[in-house]
């Protein structure tokens, strides 16, 4: 027999929703973290700033909101070769809804190779790297420790990306940072130093994930908050690739001949009469 005190927590939650976020009070208004959506946010604050408010509980100022806006423009564009975008394009070519295709592509970018997880991993790295640097480690020691942690695979998240090395988005984001008047702070300064070291010794350069992660670490955003803010960061490009194939005939996107798929499995065989414990016989 269970003690009723053991169930107290669930009894207290039963039949209730507790929200730290806000909600709709019928007849009074809609509230996001105590801001009235209709009176204090709409028309005054951008969509991106409210999204960051919903993700973190803190409303970024207009200047930082502009930076977030620019960063999100950097994280998605309409190229149907990118894995998440390609999924959106497959959705268009078989006539799923815009919402379904955008969701499927967005879900794909929850990836350790590209997309939001690379920003999160980059932030974890640069935070640990700054602590190690302040503890007296050299950049070479920090990089080698990270290589070792990655089982000798020779990459550091935030300094390698599929398809290309280097990143055209960085000069644009640096221009935006300076124009908005954000000073270079410790994480970003170290991120660039590590980038220069990796470029000189391993041919890899800092990429957008590494840059955004360091900038946001300097502004006090946690990895959990960054994961939430950038959760749907690829949706714009996915939607574009969906729209492109949805506007064309069905299955016009990358049709394949049977021989276009290489078979590397077992040779053809017949189904056996019986199957015993040890397998087919």
């Amino acid at each position: 027999m269970h003690n009723s005190d053991d169930l107290l927590f669930w009894e207290q939650q039963r039949g209730l929703i507790r929200s730290r976020k806000g909600g709709w009070i019928v007849g009074k208004g809609v509230y996001c973290h105590h801001y009235s959506l209709m009176d204090e946010l709409i028309g005054r604050v951008s969509y991106v700033r409210v999204m960051v408010l919903n993700a973190t509980g803190r409303l970024p100022g207009k200047r930082l909101g502009n930076w977030f806006e620019a960063s999100l423009l950097c994280t998605s564009w309409p190229d149907a070769r990118i894995w998440c975008n390609q999924i959106g394009a497959f959705g268009g070519t078989v006539r799923v809804s815009p919402a379904a295709a955008t969701m499927a592509g967005t879900l794909a970018a929850d990836s350790m190779a590209y997309g939001v997880q690379t920003i999160v991993q980059s932030q974890q790295f640069i935070q640990q790297a700054l602590a190690a640097r302040r503890g007296g480690q050299t950049i070479q020691e920090i990089v080698e420790a990270e290589f070792k942690r990655k089982l000798g695979k020779g990459y550091v998240t935030g300094y390698s990306r599929p398809i290309a090395s280097g990143d055209l988005r960085l000069p644009a984001m640096e221009r935006i940072r300076k124009r908005l008047g954000f000073a270079m702070q410790a994480h970003l300064r170290l991120a660039f130093k590590i980038g220069r070291y990796l470029d000189a010794h391993h041919g890899e350069q800092i990429n957008t994930a590494g840059y955004l992660a360091a900038f946001l670490a300097d502004r006090g955003y946690s990895t959990q908050e960054v994961y939430r803010i950038y959760a749907s960061m690829v949706s714009s490009g996915v939607l574009a690739c969906f729209a492109d194939t949805d506007d064309r005939p069905a299955e016009a996107f990358l049709p394949l001949r049977c021989v276009d798929v290489q078979y590397t499995g077992k040779p053809r065989r017949v189904v056996p009469e019986c199957v015993d414990e040890g397998g087919r016989s």
Binding site: V96, A100, L107, Y114
Partner: peptide
């Protein structure tokens, strides 16, 4: 594409089933 792109493996099935939801 999700598998090759190293999407979280738990997302492979929801992604593919979503695309299997089409009118074509």
């Amino acid at each position: 594409s999700a598998g090759a792109g190293k999407s979280d493996p738990r997302h492979i099935l929801p992604i593919a089933l979503t695309i299997m939801g089409g009118d074509h």
